[in-house]
């Protein structure tokens, strides 16, 4: 029997494998492409005056309305199948969100509460709070309920899961909004549909990201139970702020030459809002993750 001292070598380095789909990357890809396509469409139709055959245009408009969904399937849903630990229930989240939007959210806002009918002539602060307390709260609450009771808590494993499910819910909701718009405004051209798609994307993505932060922190952080309601309030407020601001920016000034609206401002505003929301919430996530990492490291040292 022989005995030899094992050589003092460092253990093999553990493989750095991230088993989940990278949500931020998908979201940024989808957002950039949506903004790009919608922006180009808007510019081409508004300033170059493209004139497509009616049938082609109808098809194009439908594609635009479904663009967020298509991009989500391409960049999020397919990507999910290529990772070791895919998120389950994303399809359900999206589908139920869309169903809830079609069955409850949109009819409740457009037919019952009708904020656009009685808020359009009010002052700016009234309009902001009016939309926040009606359209905003209904939309964000429905998405929250879908994520909370359909996806979580079983599906929430890491913070980014909250984003993935909230965005899936947002895509479902915004797709319904887009389709409602397209079917209710058959005369709207691709430029105006692009504008609406961007608008609905901005309020839904911004609202859902804010809400996702509240859910993630409630699930994975040690925070007050009031954070989640606060983020719902903030998401609704973003809706209330963006809806009147966007239309206010696009609205015309009445002059002797008439009143020509400026929808270009609307495009720029909606695009800006979605990027700012992504940037801001990403920052918050990074800060929290960093704090957690520091906390974990300091904990392991002790």
């Amino acid at each position: 029997m022989s005995f030899s001292t094992p050589p003092l070598i460092a253990p093999p380095k553990e493989d750095v494998i991230y088993p989940y789909r990278r949500v931020w990357r998908s979201l940024i890809q989808e957002t950039i492409i949506t903004v790009g396509i919608c922006g180009v469409t808007f510019v081409v139709y508004q300033f170059i005056g493209l004139n497509l055959p009616e049938l082609v245009e109808s098809g194009f408009v439908l594609i635009l309305a479904l663009l967020p969904l298509i991009l989500w399937i391409l960049f999020s849903r397919f990507a999910e199948t290529r990772v070791p630990v895919p998120r389950v229930g994303l399809n359900t989240t999206l589908g139920l969100s869309a169903l809830a939007a079609a069955a409850i959210g949109v009819p409740l806002v457009n037919t019952v509460i009708q904020p656009s009918d009685w808020l359009s002539l009010e002052s700016a602060p009234t309009r902001i709070f009016g939309y926040m307390l009606t359209a905003g709260i209904v939309q964000e609450f429905i998405k929250f309920m879908v994520v909370r009771y359909v996806s979580g808590p079983r599906a929430l494993r890491i913070r980014e899961d909250s984003i993935a499910y909230c965005i899936a819910s947002a895509v479902g909701y915004m797709t319904v909004l887009n389709l409602f718009y397209v079917f209710n405004h058959p005369a709207a051209g691709p430029d105006m549909v692009s504008l609406r798609v961007l608008h609905y994307m901005s309020i839904n993505v911004a609202g859902s990201l804010i809400m996702s932060y509240g859910i993630a922190q409630t699930w994975f952080g040690r925070v007050s139970p009031l954070l989640m309601p606060f983020t719902l309030l903030a998401a609704a407020f973003i809706n209330g702020l963006v809806i009147p601001l966007r239309s206010g920016l696009a609205n015309a000034s009445l002059l002797l030459s008439g009143a020509s609206a400026s929808p270009l401002f609307s495009v720029a505003f909606s695009s800006g809002i979605v990027f700012v929301a992504i940037g801001l919430v990403l920052f918050f996530y990074r800060v929290v993750e960093e704090q957690e990492r520091i906390s974990r490291e300091s904990g392991s040292l002790t």
């Binding site: 307390l133 709260i137 209904v138 964000e140 929250f144 009031l226 309601p229 719902l232 309030l233």
Partner: peptide, 10 residues
Amino acid sequence: FTIILALVML
């Protein structure tokens, strides 16, 4: 709290 808040706000 979130549900209550949503209903109150509405």
